[in-house]
Write a protein that binds this DNA or RNA. Structure first.
Length: 256
DNA sequence: ATCCGGGTCC
DNA sequence: GGACCTGGAT
């Protein structure tokens, strides 16, 4: 996504050798990342290809409607998807999978229904906050909302209570098909373990690594992020990562 | 019995 | 840095 280049990002880790990017690398950048682990094709594409070959298409987001995707994006904050599914099923059964219904329902009722997703009081507030925003700004039309230019909409989403950078990007990408990277905990952990970023890297640093090298279509971001989450769950786990069996294991430095 | 999630707000 | 919170995995 080219337009993101105008955003004020923090120090951009040099992910690719300048010989490949054609860019000048900064002289004496921070001691963050070494250069990419391989020669030849752009490394991020190799990561992508390795994961896609291994796992195949992920068909994300697992939501039936755009609004359901938004609801899922909020409910899954720091929560496993299995716990979110129950909550969404409850909302559907109760006929609450629409912005108007969420606005109307009493908070205590909403809290009961989404209890399984954790932080249920916070998340009930967040769902209502989003629906009020949608009502006020776009007449409850997600279609109209997503017609807004990516950067403009992203800023507006970030102004909603309960929508931080990851949730905003999830909504943009998976509900709106806007070409942005979702840089979640799995993504950051994977890049850190592979030496692309340091501990101090922030959300925008991680996002930018992907966006600056992307072909610019939402499909690539969609598939890539979903593949990374899959990898994070199966191999790049917090405890006991399974680097030997991991499709990305060969990109690790010796002895890591 | 502890850990940990497809984070965000204060 | 602390609070918010559940339920499956380890």
């Amino acid at each position: 996504m080219r337009s993101a280049a105008k955003t004020a990002f923090g120090p951009s880790p040099r992910a690719l050798p300048s010989a490949l990017t054609g860019r000048k690398t900064r002289a004496g950048g921070p001691s963050l990342p070494r250069t990419a682990p391989t020669d030849g094709a752009p490394p991020l594409d190799e990561y992508y290809n390795s994961l896609f070959t291994r796992f195949g298409p992920q068909h994300w987001w697992p939501g039936k409607t755009k609004f359901e995707v938004v609801v899922g994006a909020i409910l899954t904050q720091n929560t496993s998807w299995a716990n979110v599914e129950r909550a969404i099923t409850n909302l559907r059964t109760a006929g609450l999978l629409s912005p108007a219904a969420i606005e109307r329902v009493p908070s205590t009722r909403l809290e009961e229904l989404i209890r399984s997703s954790g932080y249920f009081r916070q998340k009930a507030r967040k769902l209502k906050a989003f629906c009020q925003f949608l009502d006020r700004e776009y007449g409850r039309s997600l279609r109209r909302m997503f017609e807004t230019p990516t950067i403009v909409l992203r800023d507006k989403l970030l102004g909603i209570f309960g929508v931080g950078p990851e949730t905003a990007d999830s909504i943009l990408l998976y509900a709106g098909e806007h070409p942005v990277m979702v840089a979640d905990g799995y993504t950051k952990r994977l890049l850190a373990r592979h030496g692309w970023i340091g501990e101090k890297a922030g959300y925008e640093d991680v996002r930018w690594i992907f966006e600056r090298h992307s072909p610019g279509n939402s499909r690539w971001f969609n598939e890539f992020h979903a593949l990374i989450v899959n990898t994070g769950k199966s191999f790049c786990r917090k405890q006991k990562p399974l680097c030997q069996a991991c499709p990305l294991g060969r990109y690790l430095e010796e002895g890591r």
